[in-house]
Design a binder for these strands. Structure first.
Length: 313
DNA sequence: AACGGAGCCAACCGCGATTGG
DNA sequence: ACCAATCGCGGTTGGCTCCGT
C-alpha cells in the first residue's frame, strides 16, 4: 500500500471554500500560474488537496467565468452539442469559453434534461433528440452523410479546435466582489494585508517578484481607493486588469483574444487544419464559420438550432 | 411562523489517461 | 517496461435556498 490519496490525508479540509482560502489561491496562481497543483497546498499552506485547489480554480476563480443565467443561445449550443457528443462536458465546455464543464453539466442535469424529458413526454416519445433527429444532423444527412459516418467523424479529436487559443473574458467581477466583501467584512483582512498586500501603484510596473497584488488602473494609473479600514477597495476594472492574463505570468498560453484576433486565430487554425490534417468535420466547419462570423468570442447558433432550442422552452 | 419537499450548485469521489522516474 | 504520482473528466452527493402548505 502506498500513501493514501492526498484528499484522505489527515488535516485536509473539505467542504465550501472560504473567501480567505480563495484569496490565497488566487494570489498564488497569479504569481505562479495555474498548473503544478501538487505544489499549491504545500506552498500556500492551504489545508486543501491539490485536486480541490485545481477544481476551485477551474470552476469558480478562473477569470472570465460566468455563472447562472444561461441564455437561450447558450442553451441551444449545449443541446446541440450534447446531442452530438453525449455527456462529454469538457468538450462541450470548450465551445463555451465562459462556462465550465461543471456548470454545463449542472445546467444540463437540472434544466435541460427535464425540458427534454417533458418535451418527449408531450410528444409521446415520437421525437427523440439524438444525432438522428437533431436538425443539424438533418443537414448532415441531406449532404449525403449518415449518422454512423458522422459518429466516425466525431472521432477526430475536437481538441484540434481547442488548439486555437482559448478565449477568456477578462471579467473578474466575481473575484472582485469576493475581495471587496472580504476586505470589508473580515477583521483578519487587515492582518492579512501585510501578507497579500494590495497596494497603490504609483509606478506603472509591478515587479511580480513578491506576493503582492498591485491594484491600479492601467488606463489612468490612478491609485486604488482605500476604504475605512485603510484597506484598498479594488475597482472591478482594476481587478479585471489585475487578473487579466497579460498580468499573470505562466498564463501566456491562455492569451486573451478578442474579435479580429479571434477570427484571425481561427482562420489560421482552419488553414492549418486544412493543409496538414484530415478535412474538417461538418461540425468543426460550422464552428469555425460561426466563430468567424462574430466578434465577442461567442458561438452563434445556426437558425435551425435556435428553433430547436425554442421548441423545448 | 414553522415545517417539509424540491431545486440548485459547489464540491467530492472514483476511474481512466498521462507523465515522469 | 513497469510503477507510482498526478491530472482531468464525468457522475454523484451534501448542504443551502426557495417555495408551497
Amino acid at each position: 500500500m502506498g500513501r493514501p490519496p492526498c484528499c484522505d490525508r489527515v488535516g485536509i479540509k473539505k467542504g465550501p471554500w472560504t473567501p480567505e482560502e480563495d484569496i490565497i489561491l488566487v494570489s498564488y496562481i497569479q504569481e505562479h500560474g495555474p498548473g503544478n497543483w501538487r505544489s499549491v497546498p504545500t506552498n500556500t499552506g492551504l489545508m486543501r488537496c491539490s485536486k480541490s485547489c485545481r477544481l476551485r480554480w477551474i470552476n469558480y476563480l478562473r477569470p472570465g467565468i460566468k455563472h447562472g443565467n444561461f441564455t437561450p443561445h447558450e442553451e441551444g449550443i449545449i443541446l446541440h452539442l450534447q446531442a452530438l457528443l453525449g455527456n462529454r462536458w469538457a468538450a462541450i465546455a470548450s465551445y463555451l469559453p465562459q462556462r465550465t464543464d461543471n456548470d454545463i453539466k449542472n445546467y444540463w442535469n437540472t434544466h435541460l434534461k427535464k425540458k427534454i424529458d417533458k418535451f418527449q413526454t408531450d410528444t409521446a416519445g415520437s421525437y427523440v433528440i439524438s444525432p438522428d433527429t437533431n436538425p443539424f444532423c438533418h443537414d448532415y444527412i441531406a449532404k449525403g452523410c449518415n449518422t454512423e459516418a458522422m459518429k466516425q467523424e466525431m472521432k477526430f479529436p475536437l481538441s484540434r479546435f481547442s488548439q486555437t487559443p482559448s478565449i477568456y473574458a477578462s471579467s473578474t467581477e466575481n473575484i472582485s466582489r469576493l475581495l471587496e466583501g472580504w476586505v470589508r467584512s473580515s477583521p483578519k483582512a487587515a492582518a492579512k494585508k501585510k501578507e497579500f498586500a494590495i497596494t497603490d501603484n504609483n509606478n506603472s510596473s509591478s515587479s511580480g517578484s513578491s506576493n503582492t497584488v498591485t491594484a491600479a488602473s492601467p488606463k489612468e494609473n490612478k491609485p486604488a481607493e482605500r476604504n475605512q479600514e485603510g484597506c484598498v477597495a479594488v475597482a472591478h476594472e482594476d481587478l479585471d486588469s489585475l487578473l487579466s492574463f497579460e498580468n499573470i505570468s505562466g498564463m501566456i498560453s491562455w492569451g486573451k483574444i478578442h474579435g479580429p484576433q479571434l477570427a484571425q486565430a481561427n482562420a489560421e487554425a482552419k488553414q492549418d487544419a486544412e493543409t496538414s490534417q484530415p478535412p474538417l468535420s461538418l461540425l468543426e466547419n460550422w464552428l469555425f464559420d460561426e466563430a468567424l462570423g462574430q466578434a465577442d468570442g461567442f458561438l452563434e447558433l445556426p437558425a435551425n438550432c435556435l428553433s430547436w432550442s425554442a421548441m423545448l422552452s
